[in-house]
């Protein structure tokens, strides 16, 4: 698999404040990378460096070139956090203008249809809602038919339909072999599409790997069942951190699902409607980011 981005020992400071602290990573062609972290963790700064908007110490190579190279620009689409509200310009005019900046771009009309922007394509940008502007910003990122996409908080402000349409498009882009680096606070959406997740805290990566790897590292599970036995009986189970009873169900949280389930099976005949759920990315993320960075 071809490496599209290779970053080694990246560092960046805002004045005295160290925002990126010696981070290294690699992104391969066709991967979807979920870049997650709390506000101020350094995600947007990292994207700005990869786009060539910020200088850095350390080595970064995209498509074999430095960030901001003409070769790179021809293959990269970006959706920054700020939506443009340029006065006196309609959606279709802006898309046509940005399309003209690329040698091989999509037809604006075609993209407007595919992304369901037809109802407001003739509207001026100043008349659009926040969610509609976000959709236009996504269309701008796609118009140059890029091989690599940087999407910074892409679904903020989008309504449910627009978000579903957005993630559908991301899956289509993945099928087409596009590489996508995406930051979002909607972690359940990231967990659905990302091949790898990079978790940032205080300018460092505290995890790099697949969601499966992350779940395996954090063997936490929630076991829910119905039983005629008192909930206190289950307190003796190994690795149990929490037991609750609600709606006639017993909820057990465990830090080692396998061990707890093995012990629980001794009571199997007294248990009904058992479900075992591994923890979501959101729950693991909260636990991860609450721990101190080593």
């Amino acid at each position: 698999m071809k490496t599209l981005i290779e970053a080694t020992h990246l560092k960046f400071n805002y004045g005295q404040k160290s925002v990126l602290k010696d981070i290294s990573f690699r992104v391969n062609s066709g991967e979807i990378i979920g870049l997650i972290g709390e506000n101020g963790a350094g995600k947007t700064t990292l994207l700005n460096i990869l786009l060539g908007l910020y200088p850095t110490t350390g080595d970064v190579v995209l498509f074999g070139k430095q960030p901001g190279s003409k070769v790179g620009k021809a293959h990269i689409g970006s959706m920054l956090q700020t939506d443009m509200v340029i006065q006196g310009v309609t959606v279709s005019e802006l898309l046509a203008e940005i399309a003209s900046c690329y040698e091989t771009s999509f037809s604006p009309e075609q993209l407007i249809k595919e992304l369901h922007l037809t109802t407001f394509a003739k509207e001026r940008l100043t008349n659009l809602s926040g969610g509609q502007l976000r959709q236009v910003t996504f269309a701008i990122a796609l118009i140059g038919n890029p091989d690599l996409l940087f999407l910074d908080e892409p679904t903020v402000g989008m309504d449910v339909q627009a978000r579903q349409s957005f993630w559908h498009r991301i899956r289509l882009l993945k099928q087409q072999g596009k590489t996508i680096v995406i930051t979002s606070h909607y972690l359940n959406e990231i967990q659905e599409v990302a091949d790898r997740i990079l978790v940032m805290k205080n300018g460092q990566f505290i995890f790099q790997g697949s969601f499966n790897d992350l779940q395996n590292q954090h063997q936490r599970v929630e076991i829910v069942f119905q039983t005629e036995r008192a909930s206190d009986v289950f307190k003796v189970l190994p690795h149990v951190t929490e037991i609750n009873k609600s709606d006639g169900n017993i909820h057990i949280r465990s830090t080692d699902g396998d061990a707890t389930l093995y012990a629980l099976m001794k009571n199997f005949k007294h248990l009904h409607q058992i479900t075992v759920t591994r923890e979501s990315l959101e729950t693991i993320f909260v636990q991860l980011t609450n721990q101190e960075v080593k």
């Binding site: 786009l51 990269i76 939506d83 340029i86 006065q87 940005i98």
Partner: peptide, 18 residues
């Protein structure tokens, strides 16, 4: 100023046209 504040300058800067 408007174009810079709205991110239009950055957007054009990120395209091959510059």
């Amino acid at each position: 100023k408007h174009d810079r504040d709205q991110g239009f300058v950055n957007l054009l800067n990120l395209t091959p046209r510059g």
